[in-house]
Amino acid sequence: MSNFLTDQQIASLVEAIQSAEEHSTGEIRVHIDSNTEAHNAETAFEVFKKLCMNKTADRNAVLFHVNFEQKYLTIIGDTGIHEKVHQSYWDHLHDYITSEFSKGNYYKALKSAILETGLELKKHFPVEGENHNELPNEITFS
């Protein structure tokens, strides 16, 4: 699992994802990478595709790709959500998370970012009718 998050915190992050997605058609995933040595955004894009995050109906999936050992974070918002919030939103979120990570607040940073992302998804992609969960909410690891 992870040396930076307890099993209980990981379970709580899954609940945060469920809560964040509740009022939106958007999808949020967290992937914790312990294998990649380089700071490589290409790896995050590979994970994004492997998790089928580029296949949601509204193209509004968001991936938080974290490598705690390498002190590396990539946030990928698919084209639908990126067009709505623009790069400045992701930059702000990235700065907040990495600032909290530097203080050792791994759980707090991820949970806050998930919930904030959920608010943006709700604003731009509100649920109309039935809300199908297109992707699993579990946190993935490599």
Rank of each mutant, 00 (worst) to 15 (best):
L13P: 03
I28L: 14
G118N: 11
Q9G: 14
A113H: 08
H132N: 05
I17W: 05
N3Y: 02
A20I: 06
H39I: 05
G26Q: 15
L63D: 01
E27Y: 12
H31Q: 08
L135I: 09
M53E: 13
T74R: 04
L121E: 09
L121I: 06
S102D: 15
L63N: 03
A44P: 05
S142Q: 14
L51I: 03
D95S: 02
R29S: 11
I76C: 00
D7M: 10
W90E: 01
E83T: 07
Q8M: 04
H23A: 14
K122C: 01
L121M: 13
H82A: 03
T6A: 02
V47E: 12
S99C: 06
A109E: 07
E46A: 15
D78E: 14
I114F: 04
E120R: 06
Q87S: 13
H39Y: 06
H94G: 00
E15L: 09
E130N: 14
T98I: 03
H92M: 09
I32R: 07
E69N: 13
T43F: 09
H94L: 03
L119E: 12
S88P: 04
N105Q: 11
E120K: 12
F101R: 06
L115R: 10
N105L: 04
F4N: 14
I32P: 03
L119S: 07
E37W: 05
N54E: 05
D33L: 05
E134F: 00
W90R: 01
E37D: 09
H23D: 14
A11R: 00
K108N: 15
A61G: 06
K71L: 00
K84E: 06
S12T: 04
E69V: 03
Y106C: 07
I76G: 00
L119W: 04
S12L: 00
N105E: 11
G26L: 13
H39P: 01
A41I: 05
T56I: 05
D58P: 07
K50E: 15
E120G: 05
H86I: 02
E138Q: 14
A38V: 02
T6M: 02
E37S: 09
T117R: 11
I17D: 06
L93S: 00
E21N: 12
I81K: 04
A61H: 03
A61S: 10
E21T: 09
N40I: 01
V14R: 03
N105H: 13
T36R: 07
S24M: 13
T6P: 02
H82T: 04
S34K: 13
